[in-house]
Nucleic acid binder design. Sequence first.
DNA 1: ATAACAATTTAGGTTTGTCTAAAAAAAAAT
DNA 2: ATTTTTTTTTAGACAAACCTAAATTGTTAT
Lengths: 220, 220
Amino acid sequence: MLLSYTEENYLKAIYHLSEDGKIDVSTNAISDALNTKPASVSDMLKKLSQKEVINYIKYQGVSLTPSGKKIALQIIRKHRLWEVFLVEKLNFNWDEVHEIAEQLEHIQSNLLIERLDEFLGFPPFDPHGDPIPNERGEMKAKKHTPLSETELHNQGKVIGLKETSPLFLQYLDKAGIYIGAKIKVMDKIEFDGSLEILIDNKKTILVSNEVAKNILIAES
Amino acid sequence: MLLSYTEENYLKAIYHLSEDGKIDVSTNAISDALNTKPASVSDMLKKLSQKEVINYIKYQGVSLTPSGKKIALQIIRKHRLWEVFLVEKLNFNWDEVHEIAEQLEHIQSNLLIERLDEFLGFPPFDPHGDPIPNERGEMKAKKHTPLSETELHNQGKVIGLKETSPLFLQYLDKAGIYIGAKIKVMDKIEFDGSLEILIDNKKTILVSNEVAKNILIAES
DNA sequence: ATAACAATTTAGGTTTGTCTAAAAAAAAAT
DNA sequence: ATTTTTTTTTAGACAAACCTAAATTGTTAT
Ligand SMILES: [Mn+2]
Ligand SMILES: [Mn+2]
Ligand SMILES: [Mn+2]
Ligand SMILES: [Mn+2]
C-alpha cells in the first residue's frame, strides 16, 4: 500500500508515541508531536483507519495495526540509515542530521535502501545509538538504564540517548560524552539529583539530573 | 525564495525545453513534459510569474528569469550529483537511477549537496555524460556532434546522449556502447541512414539512424 | 479577409491536508 | 450525582495542485 508523505509522518509519530509503553495514543499527543491541530488529527485518523493501518475507536485513542507498524518501522529504518550515511560518509555532526533525514526517509525505493544499508556495512545503530530495524522490522533491543538510575561507583558505557535535540547533542559534545564513552558515577548529590561522573577514566564533570535522565547506559 | 516540489518541477521542465534553442516555451510543451493538462499549466504559469521566476505574457509562451534559471540549475545539479552517487557508490546501473534522482533532487539542504559533491570528488559529468552545474550554475559546455552527422572514417569518443530513457540505455549496454567508448564510422547506408560503426577497435555493429542521432560524439 | 483549426486561458469542480469555531463526549472536581 | 473542565469530534472554509468543459485568442488555409 502506498501512503503519502503526510500519512507516513502520522504513522511514525504514533509509533514513537507508543514506544514509551503507552498502548493507546491520544489525539492531542499526535497533534503536539506533528504541530497540527487536534481537529486535523481527527480527520487523518479516520483516513488511516479506513486504510487499516491503525486501530481507531472514536474518543478512545489509537494504535498501529501490524501492517501500520511495519510501515512505521520501514520509515524509521530509512531515517536511521540516512543518518549513518550523513555522519559516516559526509562528515556531518550528529546534531546536524535529523532534519535532513526527515526528508530522506520518504524517498521511495526498496532497492535504494538495501544498497545503502550494504554500502554502510549493515550498521545496527544510528549515530544517536538508536537501533536500525532490518527489512523485516526487527532490531536489536537496546537495554536502557538511564544514567540517573545507575548505581554509585558502577562502570558503564553510553549506548544511547532519550533526547536527540541539537542543543542536547551539542552539550554532550562539549562535555566529551559520546556513544561508547565509559562512565563511572563518582558521587550523587542528594539535593538536586545531579551526578559527578568520570568520563573515560580521564575527566570528572558534574551533570544535572535532567541530563542524566537522558543518557542511557549499559552497565558492565 | 522557497518553491514547492511541484513548482521546482515546472522550472526544471521549462529549462530543459528551452535547452533545444527555443527561446519561448509553449504551454502545451510543458503539459506534455509533466503529464498534466494545459489548463493546469496555465494556472501554474500565473503563479510562477507572480513569484518572478518566469517571464510570462498570456498566449505568448514563457521563459525563465535569471533567478528562475538559477533555481532550475540547482535542481539539475542535485539530480545529476545523486545520479553519480547511485552509480558510483551504490552500484546502480545507469538505466536505474533517473526515477530515484527525480525524488532526491528535491531534498532541501545546501550543506548536503556541497558535502555530496565533495564526497564524489567534484564530478564534472553525470553517468549519462550530462554536465553537472557548480554552485553558481556554471558547467562545462559539452560539444555535441550527433553520431549520425559524424564524417565517414573519423574516430571519435562517446561523450553524451540525447535520450536517456531506460530502454535506450539498456540497448546501449547490449551493444557495448558507453560514455568514453571509441567509435569509428565504417560505412553509411544511404537507404535508411543507418551506420556501421567500430566500437573500441574491436566490435563492428550496425546502428539505426534513430540510435545514431541520440549518441553524441567528440571528434578527435 | 474570412473561415477553420489549434493553442491557450477561464470557469467551475475535486482531493489532500490544513485551519477555526462549535458541538459532543469523557474525565475530573465538587 | 452534578457540575466543570478537558479532550475529541464535527461543521464549514481555505490553499495547492490538479481536472473537464467552455470561451477566447492566435494561426493557417482558403
Ligand atoms: Mn533523527
Ligand atoms: Mn537518530
Ligand atoms: Mn536523470
Ligand atoms: Mn542524467
